[in-house]
């Protein structure tokens, strides 16, 4: 074990050094995500790397340990700016708190492209993102149709403070309120990991025996939804968000009705492509919608969908 450890440390150190912009001529973009351990970010990274190769630029892909560590992310951002890169990709954990740090990059003349969630300022040239409100509304539509547009439903949201959490929650709730007057939302709870989501959903099922459907707002919540439905043997309709093997298997087996996937690979490509375009002097629209897809057992193996799903 010791040897592996040393080997991996050495490997890690050398990759970092290789990636560092030692040569001033080479075009280098640091890409700062909200995290790296989640599968979603791994897929974004994949897209960014392939676009980097296509454009002949070098990138680094970093992020804090968890999506709550705003301060850590700001440190990473400052370190990246200090390297004087030619462009910067940034997925802000907080849409306002990190504006001053970004201002430094803008002052240094570094073009900025925001991704995943926006920044409340005009500093980024563009934002590559999923329209979370629209995506969650599509989930609401799927759920509503499956339960005959009437009855009780609930939602489990992964986070009460982030832009994605708020956007998906409001997108889901607003759509139901506007289009489906016979559907009542009986409970909205929050759970930030798969086990806590499991327990939360089981408690919701307990409290509301007449419940017809549940919406889970990210991969962790969706895993919890799949596990809870399996453990209770409940036949209600579940709709998830993002992908991941557990969720995909549950959709394929019919345990979950379906799910919304973003296009993480597309987001990654969008960031690097946009930065390259900005350097070439092209003008960019304020936001680039990278799109989302509704998938269920019937369409998940189609090439278009399969390409954006990840394990």
């Amino acid at each position: 074990m010791k040897k592996t450890l040393i080997a991996s440390v050495v490997a890690l150190a050398s990759t970092t050094m290789l990636c560092a912009p030692a040569m001033a001529q080479e075009t280098y973009f640091p890409i700062i995500a909200k995290g790296f351990s989640h599968q979603f970010w791994q897929a974004v990274k994949l897209g960014a790397e392939s676009a980097a190769e296509r454009n002949g630029v070098s990138i680094t892909f970093e992020g804090p340990n968890t999506e709550a560590e705003i301060d850590k992310q700001t440190d990473i951002l400052n370190a990246a700016i200090a390297k004087k890169p030619q462009g910067l990709g940034f997925a802000a954990l907080d849409s306002q708190a990190q504006v001053p740090a970004l201002q430094k990059a803008a002052d240094a003349g570094i073009p900025i492209v925001a991704f995943d969630s926006g920044v409340e300022s005009d500093l980024p040239l563009t934002t590559c993102t999923t329209d979370n409100m629209a995506a969650a509304a599509a989930g609401a539509d799927g759920l509503a149709k499956a339960i005959g547009e009437e009855g009780e439903v609930a939602a489990v949201i992964h986070d009460q403070t982030s832009a994605t959490g708020i956007g998906r929650r409001d997108g889901f709730l607003n759509r139901l309120a506007e289009a489906y007057p016979n559907i009542t939302v009986v409970d909205v709870q929050y759970a930030n990991d798969a086990l806590k989501a499991t327990e939360t959903i089981k408690a919701i099922l307990q409290a509301h025996p007449n419940l017809k459907g549940i919406f889970a707002s990210n991969e962790g919540a969706a895993i919890g939804l799949a596990v809870a439905l399996k453990e209770t043997g409940s036949g209600i309709v579940g709709v998830g968000f993002d992908s991941g093997k557990t969720q995909k298997d549950a959709v394929r087996a019919g345990e979950l009705l379906g799910s919304i996937t973003q296009n993480p690979v597309g987001i990654g490509e969008c960031v690097v492509d946009s930065l390259a375009k900005a350097l070439a002097g092209e003008t960019l629209p304020t936001t680039i919608d990278t799109g989302f897809y509704w998938y269920d057992a019937t369409n998940m193996d189609s090439p278009e969908i399969a390409a954006v799903l990840y394990d």
Binding site: G35, S37, T66, D193, A194, L195, G220, I223, V227, T246
Partner: peptide
Amino acid sequence: LISSRLNSAQPAL
């Protein structure tokens, strides 16, 4: 217990 329950080892948890 936890990985059996989630049928997966979630490294970020």
